[in-house]
Write a protein that binds this DNA or RNA. Structure first.
Lengths: 181, 181
DNA sequence: GTCTATAGAGCGATAGAC
DNA sequence: GTCTATCGCTCTATAGAC
């Protein structure tokens, strides 16, 4: 019965994403993934040479989705910010993997750069020559909000989360306006 | 030979901190820690009922050190920020554990609160009624910088890291000034 | 291309002797 | 209070049959 392929790289990747999001960072083991697909653990090695390679593929998939989401923004900064936060909130494990995966190939890093350029581009009209620094500030603020929320410091589902988020965004925008004067 | 104690809760805690910082989050296993102290693995159970309890103790130790560091600040915001970033940079695993440990007892949460009050207090003169939101913004910005730096997005050891860090801080302060007007 | 079987290593935690 | 021994579980990765 062996000849016909029972799976594919794409199917494995999709199942890996699903498992990662359901079980969290540590739950994505090759054994669990194989069980999910009704395969023996080592069948996966035909498609991905190692667990690390699979993780990298998952991270890139996540980064692509986030990039796609961000590209739907009209360019208004608050909208960009909310799309970013929404992604991190709804797909925490995928977001984490994207932000912490350090075994990406050079080709895979490209999405990272596109992401970066999008943020810098959105800030260019507001920050001019300082758009690089402003982009780091904005990105750090958003990334930090995600982390704080997970630590329980900042409860997004409490009182007026959006207002609190927007407050910080307002501070940054006000700061940029003053800088431009 | 057994009667005299060969170790103590304090010694174990100190060794755990040392091991955590040297080997990183995953390197702090009870076995490795026991080997470090020339003890059998299960000797540790006399002092800490579980690995989780030990981790919580380490997290609290880290939080206390950070709080002590922050309390040396005169109140100037940039100084507070740099002390915070310095701690996160020099003791990354300890900082991580503090920010992500979720098995703290109620008593242990107190340090968390003190930390929070210190940040809010430092911002009160600048943000007035909005010091809560401003504190979240500042904390998120700083926490995010730490994360971005680790992702390799923002290389602190490159060109003018301090300037970049201070740029964002400047934006926040400028925003607060405008808010006060 | 998938399988069974296994190597080789890690871990937290427990039982019971001394 | 510490020890040896061990349970029971996790994992990645490889070897070789079919």
């Amino acid at each position: 019965m062996p000849y016909p392929a029972k799976t594919s790289a794409e199917e494995i990747l999709a199942a890996a994403v699903e498992l990662l999001e359901r079980e969290g960072q540590g739950g994505l083991s090759l054994r669990a993934l194989a069980a999910e697909l009704h395969l023996s653990p080592n069948a996966l090695y035909r498609y991905y040479p190692s667990r690390e390679a699979l993780l990298a593929a998952v991270a890139v998939q996540g980064a692509q989705w986030l990039l796609t989401d961000l590209q739907t923004a009209t360019g208004a900064l608050p909208q960009l910010a909310h799309i970013y936060l929404k992604f991190a909130q709804e797909r925490p494990a995928l977001y984490d993997l994207y932000m912490t995966c350090d075994s990406l190939s050079a080709a895979q890093r490209q999405i990272y750069d596109e992401h970066w350029e999008l943020v810098v581009g959105a800030l260019a009209p507001l920050a001019g020559a300082h758009s690089r620094e402003a982009a780091i500030t904005l990105w750090a603020y958003l990334h930090g909000l995600v982390g704080l929320e997970r630590s329980g410091v900042y409860d997004v589902s409490a009182e007026k989360p959006r207002n609190t988020t927007d407050f910080g965004l307002g501070l940054l925008l006000a700061g940029l306006r003053e800088l431009a004067r």
